[in-house]
Nucleic acid binder design. Sequence first.
DNA 1: ATTAATGTTCAGAA
DNA 2: TTTCTGAACATTAA
Length: 270
Amino acid sequence: MVRGIRPHVVGRTLASFRRSKCGLKVIDVSPEPKRLARIIRGQTITSVRRFAKRVVLTLSEGGDFVIEPRMTGLMLLSDPPTTAHLRVEWRFMKHATSAYPSLWFWDRRGLGTVHYYGPGQFEELVCTRLGPDALAMNAELWTERLARTARPVKVALLDQTLVAGIGNLYASEILYLSRIHPARPANALSRREIARLAAAVQEVLDDAILHEGSTLADGTYRNALAQNGRYQNSHRVYARTGMKCPSCDAAIERIVQAQRSTFFCGRCQR
DNA sequence: ATTAATGTTCAGAA
DNA sequence: TTTCTGAACATTAA
């Protein structure tokens, strides 16, 4: 998302910010929306970055818009999948060369959130609650973090206070590549297994980002131009129950852990 | 036609 | 203290 919108959004000046008709019930913007529109008007977006699973737009006076897409939220420059479910619009001042007058947050299920934080508030209120970013981890950090809990390693990977940035789909893919059974207690992994896990996290997430994410059967996820991702073509186990394991031909299994689906190969993952 | 499932997070209970 | 449960929501597949 960040890579898709950054080239078209950094340096643009905001004209207005508004919730659309089907606006977010969960949107929780401080200060009040009316005052907010006045505050942000005329400010330039100085950076667009990712923080764990959030998209952060930083304004010239230091405030941040923080978008948390959750299950079905999209950041779009054009062509939403439907005109329904458009939740928030950032409208830019006229720009000679840009084809995109607005940035949209579209969210079919409506679980996503958009917050505005004054200077420093995001770091203080949100960043401090989350674990280190998944892509900033190393074997030593993994060892320390996983030692904290006896929960199944799959459940631990989804705990954003333990490590931030891994979602359900990628947790299954990571454990498959690590050859670790998802039900293993997190604090019982060997040195060697942790080393494999650390490498698999980098490989899976880097590759998924490179392929612009996974557009699943429901077709929800799209990039900033509403195009499908391509990482679903590289899924090894996710949503492949009963299909052959790519490396041993055993059938992929599905179990439920912490009310979320987990997919794995019972032969390759121990 | 129901029901279960869903790239998630959080409060509140066990 | 740690872990579990259900709710928020809309749509699709079974």
